[in-house]
């Protein structure tokens, strides 16, 4: 243990929450993919990959807001499932209903986030209990409401966000709508984290007591983080529903992928450290890793194990490197 400690401390000191480690991992994975599957890096297929990764990138950004403020949101996967199933039933193939349902999905996702936040902050229920309870409630409710199998279908207008692209774009080949959506929202997230709200959010995660004493409304700040996570899940549901269609499995396990991505991006669990860009790059890295595993013929069922190993490794490394504790 002691030798391990000194060894780790002797490594070049990277600023906690810095982006260098994740960029290095991403670079290495890109090289490995390029060796195994050279065609993958052609503009068209690379752009499609980025579009496919959009939902998990959004979920990672949403999860980042919650984690950096010192909490967890385990309900996002079930929220995605619920929204996809609900949207399909409400639209029921009618193109006219697309926009109202898109609005409903986002507003109701924000509401679920609000409920998570209020229960966690005002009723003082630990967030993993709140959001695991919410997971049970959402999954149960959506199964109950649809009698055990999804009904209705999404309109083509709804699905285009997740599956269509601007074709024949010079240089890029094709630009999926989902990629544009994620770029705009990622930019907004980065701007948000540079605003007063972003600094407050990190301060709350770093030390809720200190933040409270300096006049921050901790409960409100954390609740907003949960709302942002809910909205991210709503948008991810629209993209995922479009891309992969309606099923009860649409969002299953995505909460763990999002947490893995956030940890991989150098964000400290427990709050207070890390960048939203890191979390989103973490999501991209995770997707790239899964793509590489796929090219190498590794079964998709080991994904949870890979995520578990990444979470443990990342947290153990960061725990060993922080001198205090």
């Amino acid at each position: 243990m002691t030798t391990g400690d000194t060894l780790l401390r002797r490594l070049p000191r990277v600023r906690a929450g810095g982006l260098l480690p994740i960029l290095v991992i991403l670079g290495v994975l890109l090289i490995l993919v390029a060796i195994r599957q050279p065609g993958f890096l052609a503009p068209g297929s690379l752009m499609s990959f980025l579009g496919r990764s959009a939902p998990i990138i959004l979920l990672a950004a949403g999860q980042y807001f919650v984690i950096v403020s010192g909490e967890f949101d385990l309900s996002v996967g079930s929220l995605v499932t619920a929204q996809v199933v609900i949207a399909a039933r409400l639209i029921d193939g009618e193109p006219d209903r697309t926009w109202p349902v898109v609005a409903l999905v986002i507003v109701s996702s924000a509401f679920v986030g609000l409920v998570n936040g209020v229960i966690t902050t005002w009723l003082r229920v630990p967030s993993f209990i709140t959001t695991l309870g919410m997971l049970l409630i959402l999954v149960g409710a959506v199964y109950f409401w649809s009698d055990g199998s999804p009904k209705g279908e999404l309109s083509e207008q709804f699905r285009r966000f997740g599956r269509r692209a601007f074709e024949d774009v010079p240089v890029f080949g094709r630009v999926p709508y989902a990629l544009l959506v994620v770029l705009v929202l990622a930019l907004l997230a980065i701007v948000l984290m540079r605003s007063d709200f972003g600094r407050t959010l990190v301060a709350v995660g770093d030390s809720p007591r200190a933040a409270e004493l300096s006049g921050v409304r901790v409960a409100r700040t954390r609740t907003i983080a949960f709302v942002l996570s809910g909205v991210a899940a709503g948008v991810a549901a629209i993209l995922l529903g479009g891309y992969s269609g309606v099923s009860f499995q649409a969002g299953s396990g995505l909460e763990f992928s999002a947490i893995t991505a956030v940890v991989l991006g150098g964000v400290a669990l427990g709050g207070g450290r890390g960048a939203v860009l890191g979390a989103m790059l973490g999501a991209l890295t995770l997707e790239l890793l899964f793509a590489l595993m796929n090219f190498s013929g590794v079964s998709g069922t080991v994904r949870p194990a890979v995520q578990g190993a990444i979470i443990l490794l990342a947290v153990a490394v960061s725990a060993a490197r922080s001198p205090s504790d």
Partner: peptide, 27 residues
């Protein structure tokens, strides 16, 4: 050991071990 020796938050450590087991069971 993960929690006491490596000082990993219990929630994360057991979640990670749980995911490892899930991967083993699923595959």
């Amino acid at each position: 050991l993960l929690i006491a020796r490596f000082r990993i938050n219990a929630f994360i450590a057991t979640l990670g071990v749980g995911l490892l087991l899930k991967g083993y069971l699923d595959s």
